[in-house]
Write a protein that binds this DNA or RNA. Structure first.
Lengths: 255, 255
DNA sequence: CGATATCTTGAATTCCTTCAATGGTAGTGG
DNA sequence: CCACTACCATTGAAGGAATTCAAGATATCG
């Protein structure tokens, strides 16, 4: 796993040696799941260690391996996926900044699916013993994490619906609506625009479509002036119309 | 919700008024998730109340409603589903005997998807306050439930893979392999045969296929002498071959 | 600036859907 | 006991959505 300690960028250090600011998204995400008091947020932020960059297309969690730490995506993009016999690959969900990469640690279950980075990312780690001890003292922390797992479950179910009952255009629109909504929670959307380090081929792996068809589908949405996508950036031009096409109802993302 | 108290069938009663035996599958399922001591199993079984029959095709949990009790399927079959604008319906997972219908109660999340019975079923309920109090005393109970939620998550992800990357025959084979494996855990498979109160149209809603194509796919599997399906019963004739077709690897079902 | 990856386009094919009709089976009531 | 009804399974034929194959255009990066 090619990773190195992140540079400090001239920021002040917390006791753990983690630059302030890097953990903002993590705390913002947790608080959105369950409102945290200042000391609760500080306590869990204090457990994050080994903050490090991870190169694109690196598998950071392997199927079937018991975890001994909780992995948090601090910036960038990652995904759950599985490789089939046929060398075909299917993604089953995105991990966005502030999310835990896998929630199996909550029930001491082994990781059930590989997790891989897509663009360049920054990861943080929390020792499970420490996390467990903290959870005993601050139940809101545990609640927030369990709600995170619940939200991830809801996303997976929604993806089932996309792949089972929506056509290509609806799938694409729904995916963009979800990313837009989830990224907005952590403040990563600026005037309808967000970063998305994802090729069309990779989008196809997420949506169960061929690369060619992804391309044609995007063009349809472009032609309708609903989105603009280029250079790893997505701009949502007309969210209401996009949501209408996809029959997107973001309530499944709420806690 | 058309439900009535189950008859007693001449069995001895536990203090709660629930006939002995009805809860066996529930305990077996929980113990498979996390081995329980006798007193732990007895404790949670003692909380189950309002055991009642529910008619086929009854929606027992509604999208978005906060739950005030945990619902357990004691016998029969149920599913998670969502109805789309287009009047199309997509199932996102099966609930088998011994399973909780929804795990949202673990994080005080509202139910995120409707749950509906398929065949005739028997349901049990546990008050969330009592369950929470019990969980504080017996952490293994909580662990078992959280592992149940984790297993359900794994099932949803696997369904994503089926709908996104497997053709009709592989989907069908994979679905049958999963049902076979899950039902075997609770002892509901007899010489390769199990009950499945599901029409071909409903199977299509689960697998993202049209009724016609479900029919043709089943015929292919029949012709290969892999399965026999009729009158709500499925017999797996050649599990290894079926698993090979689907590239089924049951490890995702383990805790 | 050349090399590689990604995006784009066209044409042929495949898998699955839709429509429509028939056959089978179980339950209902005369 | 048999007609009647309703639901489910099955089959054929036509159409459509998405895939595959193949090639060319554009971007990206060392």
């Amino acid at each position: 796993m090619a990773s190195q300690l992140i540079e400090l960028q001239g920021r002040s250090l917390q006791p753990s040696g983690v630059p302030a600011g890097v953990l903002d998204l993590f705390i913002r995400r947790l608080s959105a799941l369950c409102p945290l008091q200042m000391h609760e947020a500080a306590a869990i932020a204090g457990l994050v260690r080994d903050v490090s960059r991870v190169s694109p297309h690196t598998t950071i969690l392997e199927d079937g391996i018991p975890a001994n730490e909780a992995l948090i995506l601090l910036s960038g993009l990652a995904c759950h996926y599985k490789v089939l016999d046929t060398a075909r690959r299917q993604m089953t969900g995105f991990v966005l900044p502030g999310d835990f990469c896998d929630y199996g640690f909550l029930s001491s279950s082994p990781v059930r699916q590989c997790v891989m980075t897509l663009g360049p990312t920054v990861m943080g780690r929390i020792d499970l013993k420490q996390l467990s001890a903290l959870g005993d003292k601050l139940p809101n922390i545990v609640l927030a994490m369990m709600r995170g797992a619940s939200a991830e479950q809801a996303c997976a179910r929604e993806l089932v619906i996309s792949l089972g009952a929506r056509d290509a255009q609806q799938r694409m629109a729904h995916c963009l609506c979800e990313l837009y909504t989830r990224l907005r929670v952590v403040g990563l959307v600026d005037r309808g625009q967000f970063e998305l380090a994802l090729t069309q081929a990779e989008l196809g792996e997420a949506l169960g479509l061929s690369t060619v068809h992804v391309n044609r589908t995007i063009q349809q949405l472009r032609k309708k002036k609903l989105v603009a996508m280029a250079q790893g950036k997505v701009r949502i031009l007309d969210f209401p119309s996009l949501a209408r096409i996809a029959a997107f109802d973001g309530r499944y993302l709420r806690s």
